[in-house]
Nucleic acid binder design. Structure first.
Length: 405
RNA sequence: GGGUAGGUAGCGAAGCGGUCAAACGCAACAGACUGUAAAUCUGUCGACAUAUGUCUUCGGAGGUUCGAAUCCUCCCCUACCCA
């Protein structure tokens, strides 16, 4: 095994990071690895209770990929153990409790999606229930004695919750320790995470030291801002773009980001660009519109393909710029030849209730074959010719009369 | 174990016997506008029926009242203080 020169590795590793704790140690580890021709072990934790990966995950996954490209070993830890415990503090919706099978299954889905970025063959998957599940109560108490309540409360979100008098369960204090135990068990050299993981990463570092292991270097990556430009990207905030979204969705959502986010997205989301940062800064200045379209297309190409990116762009122009129906619309057949529009919309699941259907119609949001319908009591006559129903901005359906058999 | 303050629609937060399907903000949805699914402005935002009608909601279960989110009883949950 041979590696690129240490300096070259360092440059690539440090690109886009927020913090490396510490750079000196990183350099030492790289040097030792270079001299002994031993790959470093890089750890990244995955939460299987949320198996839908979005662009925010991609930032840190790309960093892991950097390490793989440099010849190091990527270890993806699926946190199935903690996911099985869940969160009994009444907020079970935020952290659902999973069965062992679900956790395994979600772990697989996670890995499948992550493979869009990682080199599948060079990735080791470990499930932390394998070792955390073996620990006895004794072990846990011994582990807990390494940390104090005051130090736990240093963590930003604990402190905030404590101050604003929101509940914190004891077991939540154990999560960082459990994650730290992963590092003790794996003896990894480096751990990656978003800036929100800094505390947890440091706990791992401390614990390794306590257990007589070379402490890991902690590398934090920026949290990607979501499509509304305010908070970090997160599924529950609805501002996320997911790996599994359709090309059309990804394209459209990227276009909807605020202009001042374009540059960030370029730097964080596209793999080591041939372009210099100056070149796309120039491009953005010249035409934000074109820059964003390029960005959107490249992101779609990355997650799907170039062809689909072109298609997605066409679709977008067609539906949103020119306000025409998309080329491909799902078709639904009905056996009744005449059906109230309100009932039809419910049957198509375009709306959740008849009241909502009426609301849409009275707001001029429903069209049949490009004709706006504003009569709540409108009856749709179906025949063999398919009719195109548009409900709101984005929902299109073709409806036909079911053929007699 | 004792005390205090609380639990209201997806979230945050008013209401404290009728005029409450419940103010307001955020989110969501629609219309206008736009390079955009952004921003902005306007409207909608429990369900069913559609003429100002009916039904189910304000932690849970009972009760008082012509009438309760609002009062009483018990229970569950959360925060803080005291032990």
């Amino acid at each position: 095994m041979s590696f690129p020169p240490v300096k070259e590795q360092l440059d690539r590793i440090i690109r886009n990071t927020v913090e490396v704790i510490s750079e000196e140690e990183l350099e030492q580890k790289l040097t030792r690895s270079f001299e002994t021709r031993t790959p470093l072990k890089i750890k990244l934790g995955a939460d299987p209770s949320r198996p839908d990966l979005h662009l925010g995950h991609s930032v840190v996954l790309q960093k892991l990929r950097d390490f793989q490209d440099l010849g190091h070993e990527a270890i993806l830890i699926i946190g199935d153990f903690t996911a099985m415990i869940g969160d009994p503090s009444g907020k079970s919706t935020t952290r659902p409790q999973l069965t062992a099978e679900e956790a395994k299954e979600n772990g697989r889905t996670y890995f499948d999606q992550a493979s869009k970025i990682l080199d599948r063959k060079k990735t080791t998957i470990r499930y932390n229930a394998d070792w955390l599940g073996q620990m006895t109560f004794n072990d846990v108490i011994r582990l807990s004695s390494h940390y104090t309540v005051a130090r736990m409360l240093e963590r930003d979100d604990f402190e905030k919750r404590y101050r604003s008098r929101e509940p914190i369960s004891i077991h939540e204090f154990l999560y960082p320790l459990a994650q730290g135990m992963d590092s003790v068990h794996l003896r990894n050299d480096i751990e990656l995470g978003g800036t929100d993981q800094k505390f947890n990463l440091l706990v791992g570092r401390d614990l390794q030291r306590e257990y007589g292991i070379h402490p890991q270097v902690c590398i934090t990556m920026p949290l990607l801002v979501g499509t509304f430009g305010q908070d970090k990207m997160s599924k529950s905030l609805g501002n996320a773009i997911c790996f599994n979204d359709t090309p059309e969705d990804i394209y459209g959502r990227v276009l909807s980001i605020p202009d001042d986010l374009i540059e960030t997205y370029f730097t964080l989301l596209l793999p080591t660009p041939e372009r210099s940062p100056e070149s796309f800064r120039e491009m953005i200045k010249e035409s934000p519109r074109e820059a964003k379209r390029t960005l959107a297309k490249e992101i779609v190409s990355f997650f799907h393909s170039g062809d689909l990116a072109v298609k997605a762009e066409d679709h977008f122009d067609r539906v949103f710029v020119h306000k025409k129906a998309p080329l491909e619309i799902e078709e639904f057949a009905f056996s009744a030849s005449s059906i109230p529009l309100v009932d039809l919309l419910v049957a198509l699941k375009a709306v959740n209730s008849k009241t909502e259907a009426r609301r849409l119609i009275s707001q001029n949001a429903v069209q049949i074959d490009d004709t706006k319908i504003s009569d709540i009591n409108f009856e749709v006559t179906l025949d063999q010719e398919s009719k195109t129903i548009k409900a709101g901005k984005r929902k299109f359906f073709n409806v036909v009369l079911k053929k007699d058999l």
